[in-house]
Design a protein around this nucleic acid. Structure first.
Lengths: 161, 161
DNA sequence: ACTATTTGTTAGGCTTATTTAACAAATAGG
DNA sequence: CCTATTTGTTAAATAAGCCTAACAAATAGT
């Protein structure tokens, strides 16, 4: 019966994981800088997350994620990365704007959507014959010109009763 | 210098527009029912939106959108519809879950992402030769089986230096 | 027309997440 | 070592959005 976490708290967990990954350790100050909030806000958030057994934080000490906290952080990070990939690689949105959107969307999508989008990207990226997907280039051309490429795609089915 | 609206307030505008579209008029009660909040919350929201000149609401009267309010409502509704389409028609997610996600994502995407996704769906839906897009079927098969269809797609470029 | 029910409003409270300001602890430079 | 700066903590205040409870207005039933 783990209550659903607010997107704000998800952000804190994600930030802590990211800082730990980069620096080995995470301090209040790092979180404060990364999220753009005051250290007092970080403290309040850490108390909340502590009560939910998602972080460990002793006075004046480093901040650590519990296994449960790590799990959530990984989950969010996964959504983040997936969405960023979709936005940049498929929709061809520039990094900055894509990042902004991914940071908001990551709190909005369900597991199902995460799963389907994962498969969609897999499907698109591998192409049908292991070739680079031509139609992605074709889409970029469409974005630029508004017109479909002068290209024909023929489908030939084998063994398809 | 119009301040950015909270997703909550966006929901209220969207709801009012939807109710008006359906019933001709919108009352506090309708909004309350649609959004699943108490009428006192609706009242508070209406005061907020009134102060921003997005709705008109006289005591005990109907609720109306100003032109500015209508514009925002249309915008949100557009995002909603687009996302719902993407989730159901492309990612093949069932209506209920798709609706839930769309209702959250609609507040998270930028205009750029909206624009790109619009074009992406256009591109996908029309197919390359005006045919029904074969690869969408192919993706559904991939979702079911985890395997690419036994099919080859050959690309032949014309006039492409 | 009169009462009963539904609908709308207001006041006051709760929660979440933020801030500022004052203070405490830790660290760094001489 | 001692002071100066940085970092962390706490308390009190603010803002958004919701709720309940009490009341007011409108509508419906007889």
């Amino acid at each position: 019966m783990e209550k659903k976490l607010s997107s704000t708290m998800e952000d804190y967990l994600e930030a802590i994981a990211a800082i730990q990954k980069q620096n080995g350790i995470a301090r209040v100050r790092d979180i404060s800088h990364l999220l753009g909030v005051k250290s007092s806000s970080v403290n309040a958030a850490l108390r909340t997350l502590s009560n939910k057994c998602l972080v460990v934080h002793e006075k004046y000490g480093y901040v650590n994620l519990t296994p449960a906290g790590k799990k959530i952080a990984r989950n969010i990070q996964g959504r983040h990365d997936l969405l960023l990939k979709f936005l940049t690689e498929i929709l061809n949105i520039n990094d900055d704007e894509a990042l902004q959107d991914a940071c908001k969307m990551e709190h909005a999508i369900s597991s199902k959507t995460f799963d389907r989008l994962t498969k969609f990207i897999q499907f698109v990226e591998t192409g049908l014959n292991g070739e680079r997907p031509q139609w992605l280039k074709s889409f970029r051309h469409y974005l630029k010109t508004g017109k479909k490429l002068n290209c024909k795609m023929r489908q030939v089915n084998f063994k398809k009763k």
